[in-house]
Structures are given as structure tokens and as C-alpha cells.
Computed example of a mutant assay.
Amino acid sequence: MAFLAGPRLLDWASSPPHLQFNKFVLTGYRPASSGSGCLRSLFYMHNELGNIYTHGSVLYHLFMCHKGGSPVYTRLLALDMCGVCLINTLGALPIIHCTLACRPWLRPAALLGYTLLSGVAGWRALTAPSTSARLRAFGWQAGARLLVFGARGAGLGSGAPGSLRCYLRMDALALLGGLVNVARLPERWVPGRFDYWGNSHQIMHLLSVGSILQLHAGVVPDLLWAARHTCLPD
């Protein structure tokens, strides 16, 4: 992946203020670059390279050092938050659909309610002043999903056997990733050692991938179950 000679990298104190969001990553910051310079950074070592290659949406990490500065960075962050919100929204809708498959009077209201709640959560994440505030914003969606999981676990909802365990692991991995990112672990313990590899943001990305795989493992059998299942009359 990294085989080109890159520009002289910056330390934390010399990096642009809008990129100084993790004071425990001390080195490896790219200088302000043109669009082509940002693309070129796909092929030389710097402290965002691991984030670029472990992220489902690379635009934020790839172009965050653009010479347009803070305005460009803010738009990229907003785009990234929209992607997270969409995943949280679209991933949960089939879960709600299957859980309430035998409650047709409740299902449309639940789907609409979760969609509206996701809109509020997305707006709060877009306007959040910090990483921890963004995590709390998405907590609204997580809380709603837990209510759905609780209904299924209590026998008030339906679905494929085993899918609920996948969904619980899904949200556990996502929550763990968010907490690791907010806590800045492990780089908080040894500042500078994890500048390039193994820092909290990369760990969050990998846990997010695991979370999405658990979503897939639960939703596919759920949808197959819903296609075959016949609800008993009330």
C-alpha cells in the first residue's frame, strides 16, 4: 500500500488546528495538500493510512488534509456522519420489519418512528461539538433498537432463531468501538507509539466491520424466515 516517497510529515503541534483532535497521536500528519496530493497519500506512509484502508467510506480520511482547510474538513465530517446514520437506519429497518411481522398494525408506526428518530439523531450528530457528543447522538438509535431486541427476547416479537444473538453482538461491537474511540485507547497510555497503526480510530473501524458482519448474519435468516412464516390469527 505505501510505496511512494511522501512529503515531509508534521507533528501534532504543527498540524492544522482542525486536525488536532487526538493529542495522543504525536506524529505522521500530512501537510495541507491539493486534491491530487490527497489521492497520492494513498501510497505513502502517514498516520491516516490505516484509517483510510480500514474505513468503509474513505473520503473523510483521505481528503481531511485538503488545503481548503476547516470548511472542507467540516463538510467531509458531515458526509461521514450521514453515512454512519444511514447504516444505523437502513440496517435496523429490516430488523423491525421481521420482529413485528405478525403485528401489522404496529409495524408501520415502528418503522416510521425509528426513521424519524434517526433523522433527529443524524442532526444531533452533525451539530455535535465533540466525538463523545456524536456517540451520544447515535445512542438514541441504539436505545430504540434495544427496545426492539427486548420485545423479541420477551416473546412479543418474532424472527429467525439465532438472529437476536447476532443483533446483540452487532450493537455490542459498535458500542465498544465508539467507547474505544472516545477514550483514545490505547494511544492514551503510550502517546506516540500508535501514531500509525493500532490506534483507537482504527480499532473502531475494525469493530464496526465486525458489527456489520453480525448485522448481515442476523438479517439474512430473518428475511428468509419472514418470507416463509405464516402468522397465527389473533
Rank of each mutant, 00 (worst) to 15 (best):
M1F: 04
F3M: 00
G6W: 03
P7I: 00
L9Q: 00
W12K: 04
H18Q: 07
L19N: 07
F21R: 03
F21D: 08
F21E: 04
F21K: 03
T27K: 13
T27P: 00
S33N: 09
S34F: 04
L42R: 13
F43H: 14
Y44V: 10
S57P: 00
V58G: 05
L59D: 10
F63N: 11
P71N: 02
P71D: 03
Y73M: 07
L77F: 13
L77H: 14
C82E: 12
V84G: 14
C85W: 13
L93T: 14
I96Q: 04
C98Q: 05
C102I: 07
R103H: 15
R107A: 12
L111H: 08
T115F: 12
T115G: 07
G122V: 02
R124V: 04
L126I: 01
P129I: 01
P129F: 02
S130G: 06
T131G: 04
S132F: 00
L135Y: 06
Q141W: 01
Q141L: 01
G143L: 04
R145A: 05
R152W: 05
R152F: 01
L156Y: 02
G159F: 00
S163M: 02
Y167V: 06
A172V: 05
L173G: 03
L176H: 06
G177M: 06
G178N: 07
A183D: 05
V190F: 11
N199C: 10
H201L: 09
Q202R: 06
V209G: 12
V209Q: 11
S211R: 06
S211H: 09
G218M: 09
P221L: 14
D222N: 13
D222Y: 11
D222E: 11
L223I: 13
A226F: 11
H229P: 09
T230F: 08
L232Y: 10
P233A: 15
